[in-house]
Computed example of a mutant assay.
Amino acid sequence: MENGVRVLMISEHYLPAVGGVQRHIEGVVNELAARGLGVTVLTSSNSQGIARQERLDNSIIIRIPYAWDSNPFLVALWMIANRHWIKKHDIIHVHDPIPLVFWYAPLMLFSPERPVFATFHGFERDPVPIAYKVLRVLARRLARRCLCVGGFIARQYGVQCDRLSLGAVELKPLPRQPRKGAVFVGRIEEDTGIPEYVKALAILGEKYGIALALTICGSGSIEQEVADLALSRGVEVEFAGIINNPSEVMNEREVCLAGGYLSILEAMSLGLPVIGIARSALKSDYLKAVIDEGGPISIQTSPEGVANEIARLFRDSRLAADVSQRGRAFAAKMSWNRLAETYLALWGTD
């Protein structure tokens, strides 16, 4: 793809908001800009006072006016009013169903022949409500081609994925100081398995005599419940909140309890063993996508299984070293360069 191509990325959320989708887009934008493509990100304002337009490193960010961005009808009007500016871009790529169906779809009435591409990230919650499945199927029909972050999306939502990826990560140097404790990065909700991880660490102490403190990077509606559970089971938990660079915290820990794909890849890039718990068909399918790509993740179905796996790793240094090496080798393959090439292939294949 030649230099000078103009790409418009559309996402409901972007920087300075923190999240896996935002970091995915930022990494791709930087790689595309390094190849000479001009990239603009169209997103919501999220808060009052934020700049409506700004240049950030290698891209331009355009934000829909605050308060408008929470009303699909107003967003559609804004998109239609700005359709001539949007048409100047050579490639339109939308992240996830809501901005595709409610933001961009009205513009397709003016240029129905113009292709739009999409990336589908993750899942809304477990189990997935039928409304979200219908929305994703509709979004897929609007997109010419689609990149799915995880092969589970095709199976769980019944949509065709033209390309697959788990995301990308940058290898980082290993720490010189000893590591201590466990880390979880993600939403503090029932469907992420965080209560089960706390129970697993309690079992680890009771059954194996291994006291492992847990640092949680994230937020959610059951934070107090998790705190109460940890207190009642004698597990030390630190709530670090949402942080811009969780890899700095991860690099000080011994083991990662699986959240989303990005945190899994970051843990592996740091040589951390990753253990996940899957108590539903969706979560099992989600985590098995890592194994399908060659990632050395341990998937358990109970807190007891998680505790047993941690104990096994702690008591077998050769096994732990092997898992660490294989994790870093896997992460090295999941580069931002590779992910950018996936996007270019998605856009350029007829």
Score class of each variant (00 low, 15 high):
219 S>R: 08
261 Y>Q: 09
286 Y>M: 06
224 Q>L: 12
220 G>Q: 07
75 V>F: 06
76 A>Y: 10
188 I>E: 07
160 Q>F: 08
254 E>M: 09
130 I>S: 07
162 D>H: 10
70 S>Q: 14
308 N>R: 14
349 T>K: 03
50 I>T: 12
35 R>W: 05
42 L>I: 06
73 F>Q: 04
294 G>H: 12
337 N>W: 15
235 V>I: 12
214 L>F: 04
316 D>I: 12
174 L>K: 09
292 D>A: 05
249 V>A: 13
343 Y>V: 02
309 E>N: 13
178 P>W: 05
50 I>F: 01
298 S>Y: 02
270 L>C: 13
30 N>P: 03
137 V>I: 14
205 G>V: 10
14 Y>V: 01
60 I>K: 11
100 L>A: 12
22 Q>N: 12
204 L>D: 03
112 P>M: 11
346 L>G: 08
229 L>I: 06
207 K>D: 06
241 G>F: 12
62 I>W: 15
111 S>N: 12
243 I>R: 02
104 Y>T: 02
62 I>D: 14
9 M>C: 10
320 A>P: 01
90 D>T: 08
317 S>R: 05
169 V>H: 03
179 R>W: 09
324 S>N: 04
270 L>T: 03
8 L>K: 02
159 V>F: 05
38 G>M: 15
106 P>S: 13
153 I>H: 09
257 L>H: 02
120 F>L: 13
90 D>H: 12
126 D>L: 00
3 N>L: 13
39 V>G: 11
26 E>Y: 11
206 E>T: 13
34 A>Q: 13
312 R>S: 08
55 R>H: 09
195 P>A: 09
229 L>M: 15
344 L>N: 12
234 G>P: 07
86 I>G: 00
289 A>I: 05
14 Y>N: 04
190 E>F: 10
336 W>R: 13
129 P>L: 09
319 L>C: 05
343 Y>G: 04
194 I>W: 00
95 H>P: 01
62 I>G: 08
322 D>S: 13
234 G>Y: 08
338 R>D: 11
286 Y>K: 02
260 G>W: 01
230 A>H: 14
312 R>M: 03
51 A>P: 09
101 V>C: 05
216 I>C: 09
211 A>Q: 01
260 G>C: 06
209 G>L: 08
92 I>D: 00
245 N>C: 09
79 M>N: 04
119 T>H: 04
303 P>H: 07
340 A>Y: 11
84 H>S: 11
266 E>D: 08
115 P>W: 12
346 L>M: 11
87 K>C: 04
210 I>G: 00
29 V>W: 03
110 F>Q: 05
147 L>N: 14
151 G>M: 10
117 F>N: 07
306 V>M: 07
302 S>N: 02
17 A>T: 04
42 L>C: 07
150 G>H: 07
58 N>S: 15
45 S>H: 07
24 H>R: 03
120 F>D: 01
36 G>L: 13
171 L>S: 13
249 V>K: 09
2 E>P: 06
138 L>R: 01
109 L>T: 10
129 P>E: 15
255 V>A: 10
57 D>M: 09
205 G>I: 02
212 L>G: 00
349 T>C: 03
324 S>L: 00
119 T>F: 11
209 G>A: 13
347 W>E: 00
